[in-house]
Design a protein around this nucleic acid. Sequence first.
DNA 1: GTGAAAGCGCTAACAG
DNA 2: CTGTTAGCGCTTTCAC
Lengths: 341, 341
Amino acid sequence: MSNRVTIKSIAQDLGISHMTVSRALSNNPKVRENTRKAVIKHAQELGYVKSVAATTMRGDQTTIVGLLLPNLVNEFYARFANSLAKYIEAHGLQLIIHLTNDDINKERESILKLREIQAYAVVMVPAPGLLGDEKKYLKDLQIIQLIRKRELRVPSREALVDDTGAIVQAVQHLASQGHTRIAYIGGEKSLSSGYSRMSAFITGMAAARLVPNTDEIVTDTPSFLMGHQSVQAIIDDGNVTAIICGGFEISNGALNGCLERGVHLPGDIAFVGYGDPSYYRWMSGGISTIKIEVDSLAAKTTELLTQRGTANKNGFAQQLLMAELVIRQSSLATDKLKQVE
Amino acid sequence: MSNRVTIKSIAQDLGISHMTVSRALSNNPKVRENTRKAVIKHAQELGYVKSVAATTMRGDQTTIVGLLLPNLVNEFYARFANSLAKYIEAHGLQLIIHLTNDDINKERESILKLREIQAYAVVMVPAPGLLGDEKKYLKDLQIIQLIRKRELRVPSREALVDDTGAIVQAVQHLASQGHTRIAYIGGEKSLSSGYSRMSAFITGMAAARLVPNTDEIVTDTPSFLMGHQSVQAIIDDGNVTAIICGGFEISNGALNGCLERGVHLPGDIAFVGYGDPSYYRWMSGGISTIKIEVDSLAAKTTELLTQRGTANKNGFAQQLLMAELVIRQSSLATDKLKQVE
DNA sequence: GTGAAAGCGCTAACAG
DNA sequence: CTGTTAGCGCTTTCAC
């Protein structure tokens, strides 16, 4: 069939030089109006599109932003991708999505692929772990770390969440409902987010003059399954009247674990989730959560992405979003606590 | 800092020709073992990656698959993207996601961008509407239509869903529960899916010896809002005891509209949703749905994607997935119907 | 085994 | 205003 339409093929068709075609198509004023019109018309008719491969090879930036997420099943990640895709589209950028499943090796593979295509930038939720050769495989790439951060040995920007206040508030709220035995399930402490959330929980407990039982602070590689298993272990132990989740996946897994066990929220146990998926408000009379405005986070990320200049230490290289406690039914007093009262 | 590492820069470093470097890195046997090792070692140390732009310009296929979806907020689309990303990754492909919001002009813009980067293929949920110049802007692109199909004037493959049987079953199930006034909310009839689902509903009604009221068959451009508004209008009319949804967005919007109105499912009205998001089973004692195995659909799409050869009419160019009716609490008899009984 | 040349599509720089 | 040349990074082809 028809071969690729190029400026050369158009030039040949029209009996002019390919440079004139190039100029006409890039609105260079140094082309006679007639020639320009003829070229544009012909290009339109043939469905010409410029080869990004060629311009990239000459040194142009690509329009491709890589987004590395654990998955797209969690509503928070899906909504983030949705918002980010919308925001960056306004800047002529497009989104390549790679799923890492929080596996650091997959993360490296994905970054290599993005480097091969000379991605404009990479936005990533860094996977847990250490690699050591980051300096090599992150070369020539603008990196934005999302939600959590890892030492990358390479300049990077950060779009993070400050959920400390919301977590402290969550503990205090539960305490005010009469809860004294409160469990926490979160990501491992080696993750920046895992560490800070757990610390906030401990701070909140101290502020409420409660002594957290170390058995009831569970931290591990965050996943749906981890949340699911941890919550069921806690339920089975039966020592606790309330649970706070410190992670998107964990929250969904834990909630699922509760419902599967048929426990009533908050009748049997009080529950504070993390990330506020759309359906939480409809379940069990409403699930309380530590809410993160996903759209704002995507907007802040886009700012980092489009603001030129390398990542300096002068404030603009980091964006911080405040999380917020949303109180619904699931975090009130349990039936037992009500009886005591 | 350091400029891009290329085969030429490596060649210069090692005092050999760039061709030897090229051969060494692509496992061409015609390189002395020592040279090969030296080259590979040096390339590793410098973090060399081959330029996809260069190989693309020479005619290599890219690894980029475009995925055009209305949005990523709907769990079905997010899960599809998740599954597809996983499946194609096994073939060394990566996913660029464009959100169309079911707007045919955005769809065209996205396709143009994908054509510029010479995407390997495009998987798209075609937006409603007509354009006419598809032949031009779909040039040189392998197209796979997803869920619904449009006349594209260009060869395309199709990954579709056969939900006829499930919809007929849904009507019959409702009828068996005593429902006689059943409403249907679905996509506009100009959409292949909108038409076939509505037809199935009518077929089902006929099979149950019920006469559908034309006021109670609502079809329009499918969206969350449309489902939300349509269901509330139906509730307000109060003529109907059951509702069937024919679309992912519509189903979520309609369910939301019911919950917002505080109607009890199925106490006040029976409800059959579409697409089976994970949380439907936990809401209102379980929402009945017309379920589509999203992972299977992604697997079938991947087959179409990787099976080489142009889209012939001989069977392999189309993949069909059967939908399935899942009965939960929300589609049983309403309280009124129980009283009559 | 190794290297030199050519060309993929495009534009900056220069020459008319 | 228009055309020619060169080169971005890579591999195929053809020498040596």
